[in-house]
């Protein structure tokens, strides 16, 4: 199981455009994508924009993105970059 721990840099947090971009990318991946907060909230389905929004990740907060299977490392790198983008 691969994991990426990322600090969300966007001013709006993981909402609005960053959340939509994240989910659009996650939906293209064949495997399941999980997103959790280190405090134990989640994990939620990374392909569900409503679940991501309900997780309510604010700017400066950290999330753990995880996935497993073929190609998961590449997917995780891309998703981590989206979540970390300002």
């Amino acid at each position: 199981m691969g994991e990426r721990k990322v600090t969300v840099a966007a001013e709006v947090g993981l909402h609005a455009r960053p959340a939509a971009t994240f989910v659009q990318r996650a939906k293209q991946a064949p495997m399941e994508i999980a997103v959790a907060k280190p405090n134990g909230e989640g994990p939620v389905n990374g392909k569900s924009i409503l679940a991501i929004m309900a997780l309510d990740v604010r700017q400066g907060e950290t999330v753990v993105i995880s996935a497993e299977g073929e190609g998961s490392e590449e997917v995780l790198d891309e998703l981590a970059a989206i979540a970390a983008a300002p």
């Binding site: 455009r17 939509a20 659009q24």
Partner: peptide
């Protein structure tokens, strides 16, 4: 973003 919500898993 709303289109994603309409098809949310």
């Amino acid at each position: 973003a709303q289109a994603l919500m309409a098809e949310d898993p």
